[in-house]
């Protein structure tokens, strides 16, 4: 049943003109970022007295393409996922969904998977740009894959956060705003503070390790745990109305 909900959510996103528009704009933005990064790299090569190594291109692309992409998703994911539950409330579907013979976990996890897969499809399209380069240039695939994995985990966490905020609100835009503000504050905290606790709490700080090519199990556990906690909160929230004694 979780799969059915996920497929349904994917269909809902694929039917939404806003999702298509957002996906199109993201592709445009990612393409522009990519070309800009490659062009600047070529410029650097011409200026440099020595040849810049090809593995340097991978690092350059991660810093100037994948890292900005992750920041863009801090805005895009809240906008793409704000409707996940708040949209059901706004469209008067919520009570019907609550009355279906579904567990809250099936419902919330299904929606999360559907929304995450949609965003992964957008990421997959933009990685085609990297694939084109890899035909002629020997890129550092391991480094790129590690950074890519971090990006995917980062997107999953923002999706879970937006889903949770969406379950709290009747207005999708409020969920988007709350999610964006939370992520922005954590990002700023990680960027400007040397505080260990803030560094630990910020998804951006953990993503940074992936972007450096470090596959640290602590970072993986952090993303999985935070996503799991947010989904559990979403499940509790969904059951708060229909299960006696439940609250959130």
């Amino acid at each position: 049943m979780t799969t059915q909900i996920a497929l349904h959510e994917l269909r809902v996103m694929l039917r939404s003109p806003f999702a298509w528009l957002a996906a199109g704009l993201l592709q445009l933005l990612f393409g522009w970022l990519f070309l800009s990064a490659v062009e600047r790299y070529i410029g650097l090569q011409a200026v440099a007295t020595q040849q810049v190594s090809e593995s340097g291109l991978s690092s350059y692309l991660i810093v100037h393409f994948l890292a900005p992409v992750s920041i863009i998703f801090m805005v895009a994911t809240p906008l793409l996922c704000m409707h996940l539950i708040a949209g059901d409330k706004q469209a008067n579907r919520y009570n019907l969904l609550l009355s279906l013979p579904l567990s809250a976990a099936q419902f919330v996890v299904g929606k999360f998977i559907g929304a995450t897969v949609f965003q992964y499809l957008i990421v997959a399209l933009s990685t085609l740009l990297l694939a084109i380069l890899s035909f002629n240039i020997d890129l550092d695939i391991t480094h790129l894959l590690t950074a890519g994995a971090g990006l995917l985990l980062f997107i999953a966490t923002i999706t879970a956060l937006t889903l949770f905020y969406s379950s709290l609100s009747n207005r999708p835009i409020l969920a988007a705003f709350a999610s964006f503000v939370t992520m922005a504050l954590l990002w700023l905290a990680a960027a400007t503070s040397g505080n260990g606790l803030l560094q630990f709490a910020s998804p951006s700080a953990h993503l940074h390790s992936f972007m450096q090519g470090l596959l640290d199990s602590r970072d993986v556990i952090y993303f999985v745990a935070i996503t799991g906690i947010l989904l559990t909160l979403g499940v509790w929230r969904f059951d708060a109305q229909r299960v006696r004694g439940a609250s959130l």
Binding site: R11, V12, R15, A91, N92, R93, L96
Partner: peptide
Amino acid sequence: DIGYAPDKPAIYPEF
């Protein structure tokens, strides 16, 4: 065993 139709149509308008 329950069928429920809320007061305002519970539909997906894009479907």
